[in-house]
């Protein structure tokens, strides 16, 4: 049930299992380049959070997914259903914190935690500068109100062939980031207004933080803050710019994860 609801995809084989979790905006396809590259050495698990990608939208309710812990609970359910032990959780963006919460709640599931572009809090607060103000978050949401990015076409899609990126297969225009506007709004609130700073010291899993240069969503000093607050964590700056190295520099991400494991 949960495996269908969250559109869980499992493939590859190896002694260890990697669970890849997408961040704010798009869906599990964000992890395809990295997951595909590792599938011959690891068992890989991809999934969509409820409300995103090909998940079961009917399972979504605003009050059911009102905190990051609610999403972490789904991660734990998926991991239990797959009977994972000593697995590796790889979370991009907000999923880094969802992974931290899941590993705190269920320490037996994940031995290693890989955080790609993490931020425990996106707002400014005293000495801590998460980068944004509520008005700026609202402005991003306005952008989403004006750009459904394939959402409204989701029912009558134009099929396009990915001749130059065949690994994506045939898929719908913009569908990777097509999200119900209300879900996008809710998740933005949960993502950008949640404060996980207190939770970082509770993380006991071996943690790797992968940081991009020039990432405006999760700037380097925020990554360094996460590193300083998780005991024994490793901090690695990638030679990649922007917020999505899993897409823009998949080889580097793959190499960094393997070196750490």
């Amino acid at each position: 049930m949960i495996l269908e609801q969250n559109n869980v995809q499992t493939y590859g084989s190896g002694a260890r299992t990697l669970v890849f979790a997408h961040g704010y905006g798009c869906d599990q396809n964000m992890w395809r380049p990295v997951a595909d590259a590792m599938a011959d050495r690891y068992r890989v698990v991809l999934f969509d959070y409820i409300g995103f990608g090909q998940s079961d939208l009917s399972a979504y309710a605003s009050d059911k997914y009102a905190t990051l812990q609610d999403y972490a609970t789904d991660v734990i359910k998926i991991a239990r259903e797959l009977e994972l032990q000593n697995a590796v959780f790889v979370g991009h963006s907000v999923s880094a914190m969802i992974g931290a919460l899941a590993s705190i709640s269920a320490p037996d599931l994940f031995d290693d935690l890989i955080m790609v572009g993490p931020s425990p809090y996106y707002m400014k607060d005293g000495d801590y500068n998460g980068g944004f103000s509520p008005a700026e978050i609202e402005e991003m949401l306005e952008f989403l109100d004006h750009n459904h990015l394939g959402w409204s076409q989701a029912m009558a899609p134009a099929i396009m062939g990915n001749t130059d990126r065949p690994e994506l297969g045939e898929t719908l225009t913009n569908s990777f980031c097509a999200t119900d506007p209300q879900v996008a709004r809710d998740f933005a609130k949960v993502t950008f207004l949640s404060d996980c700073r207190d939770k970082l010291p509770e993380v006991k899993a071996r943690t790797l933080i992968l940081q991009c240069v020039d990432d405006i969503i999760a700037p380097e000093h925020v990554g360094a803050y996460v590193h300083a607050n998780i005991a024994g964590s490793t901090f690695k700056v990638l030679d990649a710019s922007g917020h999505c190295p899993n897409l823009s520099a998949p080889h580097q991400v793959t190499a960094a994860i393997e070196a750490f494991l």
Binding site: G23, Y24, G25, C26, N29, M30, S93, F132, S133, A135, E136, I137, E138, E139, M140, L141, E142, F143, L144, H146, N147, L149, M160, N162, D164, R165, L168, T171, T173, N174, F176, C177, D215, I216, I217, G242, H243, C244, L247, S248
Partner: peptide, 26 residues
């Protein structure tokens, strides 16, 4: 700032995945 957030979280990933984004309003 809000535009940058949308660009980083939605437009750039889409560009990487499908190579184009059409009719986006900003």
């Amino acid at each position: 700032v809000g535009g940058r957030m949308a660009y980083e979280t939605h437009i750039r990933p889409l560009l990487r995945m499908q190579g184009f984004v059409h009719e986006v309003s900003f």
